[in-house]
């Protein structure tokens, strides 16, 4: 576990050089996007599952308009359809109705990359090969892969473990590989499906901080789903609270905290507690309703 602290320490050393390299590309992309307004536009998105028992509406008429560069959170009780919503955006699930538009700046990039819940890095590949996966699949030149993967393994503190296999790493380290893989793929938008839900509290806090730090370099548009109100307020610019069964958008809440954020300092502030309470309040009846439905 002591390894988990190294990325924070060596984080700033290479930062300025890389910020120059990557910053220029990111800026260009954002200028394009801000001209056209929103990055992700979802209209009337609905997903129904039909089984013998009847029709089950997992996602009901959800609309979203997310500007470029926003860290957008969706928070809701388990079983509210938020994972289904994200999987539809990722193209891993078909939609019953509705439309999804994602503004593409530079045509060479993949539309989205997902950080999955739980273990999703390939056990049969080394850390390096896992992080390089997306780039290799789309045939990026070797030299570019080497530079980009090297950069993100460095940012996630995994450089020393490039040749290791996942079973030799802790759960927190494996999820860092997943983060490196998504960022290295350089997509238009990043989708995150409760990436830290399987981790213990200490690791979760560390990885939240690291994710924010890595994200600050490029400020890509993020859609992050979670059941944790704390996580939503810590990470996001804006939070959508979802209702359960059917999954609908209930309220949209702006998070006023400035960036870059320091996770622990942020959590000590009274405004933080107030905002968490406010969201909990609107979520409480949803959780209770979901429990009633299950019974």
């Amino acid at each position: 576990m002591s390894n988990d602290t190294t990325p924070q320490q060596d984080g700033n050393a290479t930062r300025s050089r890389e910020a120059r390299v990557r910053g220029s590309r990111a800026m260009q992309n954002q200028d394009l996007d801000s001209a056209s307004g929103s990055k992700i536009r979802v209209k009337g998105l609905t997903k129904q599952f039909t089984s013998k028992g009847g029709t089950f509406v997992a996602v009901d008429d959800v609309s979203l308009d997310i500007p470029a560069g926003r860290f957008f959170m969706i928070v809701g009780p388990s079983g509210c359809g938020k994972t289904t919503l994200l999987r539809m955006l990722a193209g891993l699930e078909t939609r019953t109705s509705g439309s999804i538009e994602i503004t593409r700046g530079d045509t060479g990039r993949p539309v989205n990359s997902m950080i999955f819940q739980g273990d999703s890095i390939f056990p049969w590949m080394t850390v390096w090969d896992n992080a390089a996966y997306g780039l290799r699949m789309r045939g990026v030149p070797k030299a570019d892969i080497k530079e980009t993967v090297g950069h993100y393994l460095d940012r996630t503190g995994l450089s020393k473990f490039a040749g290791s296999y996942p079973h030799q790493l802790s759960g927190g380290m494996r999820q860092r590989v997943s983060i490196a893989r998504a960022f290295a793929n350089d997509p238009e938008i990043l989708l995150m499906d409760e990436p830290f839900s399987a981790l213990d509290e200490q690791n979760k806090t560390l990885l939240q901080q690291e994710l924010l730090r890595i994200w600050d370099e490029t400020k890509k548009t993020v859609l992050f789903i979670t059941h944790s109100v704390d996580e939503a307020v810590t990470m996001g610019d804006q939070i959508m609270v979802m209702t359960a069964q059917p999954g609908r958008a209930k309220v949209l809440i702006d998070v006023p905290f400035e960036r870059p954020r320091h996770v622990l300092e942020l959590r000590a502030r009274p405004e933080y507690g107030e905002l968490v309470y406010q969201i909990w309040d609107s979520l409480r009846e949803e959780v209770q309703r979901a429990q009633r439905v299950e019974e």
Partner: peptide, 27 residues
């Protein structure tokens, strides 16, 4: 199933899924 999702999400073709997911996973 998650490894097939990863392959699809990261743009692996049928042949690439065969080579990078199915074959090593079944080894």
């Amino acid at each position: 199933k998650i490894y097939h999702d990863v392959g699809k999400n990261y743009g692996a073709s049928r042949w690439q899924v065969f080579r990078t997911v199915a074959l090593p996973g079944a080894m």
